[in-house]
């Protein structure tokens, strides 16, 4: 295996594009090294992007936030402006693994690992985040929900890598939240998860909403029916019941070692409702 730590995005793209064998991007490495240890991957080339300028920066931009692909999740929590604006996104990212793992892992890596249970992804999807993809033909942008192509697969092409994640500006009277279900209090992979972002009018009526579910399908789901269920409501009991039902209806999980299909369907509804309640309160709704 070769290890390279290029200084520019251009060099990184060139290395990845040129490699004939298996090439992987290294940011936090918390998935890559585990797979290498298990013998699941034997890379020929690893490109460490942490020495590329800007990759470890969180920038406030005219259109929101730009988060470098190598920003460890622990750093997100230390950025007061980001926590204030997108608490749900930061919550999701702060739940990956342990404190130790958060010192290394990144949202971009979490997304590219393409696990349906990725903790940072539902929050990003609910927030309407986009990724900036660097590649041999320049950069392109994609909605976060369009990046995974299936379990463990992304739509990224050879030579491409995510260089940043962009979060939009948050409209007034908006709130977001992420909740996951795990059997323990820490260290587990989400059995089910839900991210909700919503915006209210001055009267507390929901005018816009995005609801994303994790670990209930091969990729994180953006559930439009669940959003519809609460738009136009003040998140009253009937709206909550509709949301719960819509989220459960959208879930199409499997039985596996982490949970049963039945359990995931039930809890998807519960978590969507609880996350919506939290987001609604954060948006100033009463």
């Amino acid at each position: 295996m070769r290890y390279e730590s290029p200084a520019t995005t251009k060099d990184a793209v060139a290395l990845l594009a040129k490699e004939k064998g298996q090439a992987f991007v290294l940011a936090g490495g918390t998935d890559l090294l585990v797979k290498m240890k298990a013998g699941m991957l034997e890379p020929d080339l690893v490109v460490d992007i942490k020495r590329i300028k800007g990759m470890k920066e969180i920038k406030k931009t005219a259109s929101g936030f730009s988060i470098g692909a190598a920003v460890p999740c622990a750093a997100l929590k230390e950025n007061a402006a980001l926590v204030k604006t997108w608490p749900g996104v930061v919550e999701g990212a702060s739940l990956i693994g342990s404190k130790q793992v958060q010192g290394r892992c990144t949202m971009a890596g979490n997304l590219c690992n393409a696990s349906p249970a990725a903790d940072s992804v539902p929050g990003l999807v609910a927030a309407g985040a986009k990724v900036v993809i660097a590649g041999p033909r320049g950069t392109r942008k994609l909605a976060v929900e369009d990046v995974p192509a299936g379990v463990g697969r992304t739509v990224l092409k050879k030579g491409e890598f995510i260089s940043a994640i962009e979060l939009p500006k948050k409209p007034a009277r908006s709130g977001d939240a992420y909740l996951r279900f795990i059997p323990r209090t820490e260290m587990d992979i989400a059995v089910v998860s839900a991210g909700v972002s919503l915006t209210l009018d001055a009267k507390g009526v929901i005018t816009a909403a995005r609801v994303a579910l994790g670990a209930v399908a091969p990729t994180v789901l953006l559930v439009k029916e669940a959003a519809k269920a609460i738009i136009g409501s003040k998140l009253d009991d009937e709206a909550k019941a509709r949301l719960t039902a819509a989220a459960s209806a959208a879930a199409r999980p499997i039985d596996d070692k982490r949970g049963t299909k039945e359990f995931r369907i039930d809890v998807a509804g519960v978590l969507a409702r609880r996350a919506a309640e939290l987001a609604y309160a954060r948006a100033g709704g009463k």
Partner: peptide, 22 residues
Amino acid sequence: TGDCGACSVILDGRLVCSCLVL
């Protein structure tokens, strides 16, 4: 695999598992 913390070290001020760093 980063699941037990027995290899914890502090790298540039951040707590990490040394098994998950090259």
